[in-house]
């Protein structure tokens, strides 16, 4: 009986009470045996059930992982920025898209004669990069300024212009064809307005800041309404959740 109580099953101890007298001992031994069998059966069931559940969980997580990978691959195929570019930087060195693979890039298209929007946006972009620089857990983000006005923005003009902004900002220019080609990859629109007596003109153009991932593909964009803090937060999230294939 001690063993029975050790099993500590209230239902069985209740059952064992009326079984007393001559046949009592045999009966309780039989019951103990049955209980042990029940325990074994329960244990085996748990083991198998648990095993099955574990296998199911593993297969399911594998499947989810595969679906996520497929989704990322699908998005990659339709992403902007599949192409390449080859332009001159503000020091006169030729730079291609491959030079920037592996680092996060913030890209802005504009022109140095731009009255207010470009300088505003480049100030904002510089502040964003500086804010990200202050977080040691994040990799350095590379800011790029690509001209949409190759006629006037030569290497010297860009060199004068970029020094007003973030120290790492790289200005890029090239022939009209090279510049158009670079912009087309990110669906950039640019159209020079009429020239005045001095030959001066304003270029109407896309004024978005583009975030490009380390594999060179477009990941997000920020319009004028986006504040510096919002952009910093968004980029931080993108960097932390980035899935490299």
């Amino acid at each position: 009986m001690v063993r029975v109580s050790l099993l500590n099953w209230p239902i069985s101890s209740r059952r064992s009470v009326p079984v007393s007298g001559p046949g009592g001992t045999r009966s309780s031994v039989y019951q103990l045996d049955a209980r042990l069998k029940l325990r074994t059966r329960l244990g085996v069931t748990l083991l198998f059930g648990g095993g099955l559940l574990g296998v199911w969980w593993y297969v399911d997580s594998e499947k989810q992982q595969r679906l996520r990978q497929q989704r990322v691959e699908q998005l990659r195929k339709v992403a902007l920025g599949q192409g390449t570019f080859s332009l001159l930087d503000h020091t006169g060195r030729r730079r291609t898209k491959e030079d920037f693979l592996g680092s996060w890039v913030l890209m802005y298209f504009g022109f140095t004669h731009c009255p207010d929007i470009c300088p505003d946006e480049l100030d904002k972009l510089s502040a964003v990069v500086s804010a990200l620089d202050r977080d040691p857990s994040l990799p350095a983000v590379q800011p790029l300024f690509i001209t949409v006005d190759p006629e006037r923005d030569d290497v010297a003009a860009l060199a004068r212009y970029v020094k007003d902004f973030h120290p790492r900002l790289i200005g890029l220019t090239g022939t009209p064809e090279e510049v158009t080609h670079a912009g087309r990859d990110y669906r950039v629109y640019a159209s020079p307005g009429p020239k005045d007596e001095d030959g001066d003109y304003i270029v109407d153009h896309t004024i978005l800041i583009y975030l490009v991932s380390p594999d060179g593909l477009f990941l997000d964009y920020y319009n004028r309404m986006k504040k510096q803090e919002q952009i910093v937060e968004s980029i931080r999230n993108h960097i932390q959740n980035y899935v490299r294939l």
Binding site: P115, D196, I202
Partner: peptide, 13 residues
């Protein structure tokens, strides 16, 4: 203080 193009641009703006 502003280039002529900018004067036109800011007036329209």
């Amino acid at each position: 203080r502003c280039p002529a193009q900018w004067v036109k641009y800011f007036t329209k703006r």
